[in-house]
Design a binder for these strands. Sequence first.
DNA 1: TCTCTCGACTAGAACGTTCTAGATCGACGA
DNA 2: TCGTCGATCTAGAACGTTCTAGTCGAGAGA
Lengths: 344, 344
Amino acid sequence: MTQPGGRRAGTARPTLADVAREAGVSTALVSIVMRGVPGASDATRARVQAVADGMGYVRDERARKLRQSSSRLIGVTFDLQQAFHGDLVEHLYGAAAARGYDLAISAVAPTRDEDVAIQALLRERCEVAVLLGSALDDAVLASTAQRVPLLLVARRSEVDGVSSVHSDDAGGVGLAVDHLVSLGHRRLVHVDGADAPGADDRRRGFALAVERHGLTSQAQIVPGGPTEHDGSRAAEALLYAPARPSAVVAFNDRCAAGVLDLLVRRQVDVPGDVSVVGYDDSRLAVGPHAQMSTISQNAAEMAEAAIDGALDLLDGGDPREVVLAPHLVARSTSGPASGTELLD
Amino acid sequence: MTQPGGRRAGTARPTLADVAREAGVSTALVSIVMRGVPGASDATRARVQAVADGMGYVRDERARKLRQSSSRLIGVTFDLQQAFHGDLVEHLYGAAAARGYDLAISAVAPTRDEDVAIQALLRERCEVAVLLGSALDDAVLASTAQRVPLLLVARRSEVDGVSSVHSDDAGGVGLAVDHLVSLGHRRLVHVDGADAPGADDRRRGFALAVERHGLTSQAQIVPGGPTEHDGSRAAEALLYAPARPSAVVAFNDRCAAGVLDLLVRRQVDVPGDVSVVGYDDSRLAVGPHAQMSTISQNAAEMAEAAIDGALDLLDGGDPREVVLAPHLVARSTSGPASGTELLD
DNA sequence: TCTCTCGACTAGAACGTTCTAGATCGACGA
DNA sequence: TCGTCGATCTAGAACGTTCTAGTCGAGAGA
């Protein structure tokens, strides 16, 4: 007994034809009414709409997209574990809807490869794929770009034919350094992101910024990584360093959270003794356990730029790289340098 | 110039008909080969496959699902902001694939209502909808259930015709209490979840458990909430309480993180002076800043149960409630009660 | 009165699959 | 020699929508 009485109500969903029969008109007319396009009188429009509502008609997106010449569908891959991706996806929904496009989202996770996620999108026949923080290497990106127009978000692309939207990582770290220097800090340290995407740029940005302020000799770059654990480990090492820094610029918020946690545990006053600045303005930054000063990438702006870039690519525009300006969000983990700092 | 030369390569994706023409066979045969079903000789199978690969053929999932009597599609709504939902979605992918089903995921976020997310799934014609931690009220759930079989995850359902999979919240809190009592703790406090889903059950579970241990008079339930901030606030109040508790059972991990953060800031030793147990075993629990003892809901098991329940519903099975046993994960925020505790 | 236009509506062909119902053909047993 | 069978392949109809190319009146202009 697979189909009989036990079957859920409403499983046989009404189609255009059902509505048309009920209303005594053609399917084409119902289609016109449902889409809200001109071609029907107000009277019949109202009548058909009422019948459709009464029957609980919901259009079949699959059939619609199959028929339409363009599917008006944007594919998005994102990492389930990354909070910032969540923010981006949320705003992508809005940005796409505003331009009359739908989103097909496909998740990436430890047990679900990026390839698998992209393949699923291709099968959905999205017109363009937006990859959030892709970890694919250039060769794979290039071959994927043969199949579908590609736009990378939060990652740079050197691959021919692939657009990208990312923030100015070097500049962002520069903002953090400027902020700390303006608070009187002189001994700055950067806990870097090791080989994480964007780590090179942020390292470079730190080096440039401290040089700009003439503080290179007092600055230091220590090995870190993208996780709390990396931050924690790096902070521990710093505590035993001969000249303890007065301010830390971490690779990202998770790393900064690790740094903060260790400092708090060791009774180091933040920001009294040491200031800490993160990067991303993820949800980690706004918990009460860390009203973290950080560099914000502005997910909404990034999402808008991504959708714009994707549609431009669809219109035959040339691939391009959009670099967004990040901005500083000063919260409670950064403050004036202590007296001893100012003296040296 | 919308279509001309600038167009991305590969935009016109090959169809079954293209492959068939190229290989000199019928579309039906290509379909047979692509699906890997019997009905083609090994020789032609290999030849057609080669042609398809050469042309970069990818099947159109939309057309396929339109044609198939059953779409073999499971719709899932999840909250982009909740880490545990991410874990669940990951395992849902696996569980669905193992049973030959695809997943259509639709996100819920502050700017994207659950209604909107569900409507999108209905348009995709999924056969059954799995709602993670739905916040819809019973009336809306009931009317939605008229349109598509419904299964709630991580939430109880009193609604007729709706299945659910959730863990035994009361029992889980009981495990936490048992654990703490076995470590010698006597003065227990529960920072509750206010009106968050599941908070009632957990509150009840705490009351039952302390009663079971004959500790009701020394136990206390204080108002909290589901966020770090709530936990922090509650912990602050506890520090000023006349009889400081020796162990805290928090509503969830975020709440526990808030508690922990405040305790650490106030130089309260965890678990030396106070033990803290969370609930969820989310990623929050495993950061280095809090190797948190917690109650784990086991996302993988829950996802399996959800898919099983959803497919059972599809097969005409009666709606049912599956209650999973949570288990304790003892990490470093819970330890033996201090001497003073043991004396009283 | 005859044509012309315009609004309201419809018939039927797509879209790219899968499925049902054959067709074709060589082999094999009687 | 003939029918039968199984393996291999194909024609054509679905699926539910949108789109193209109409039809049909009614009113306007000549």
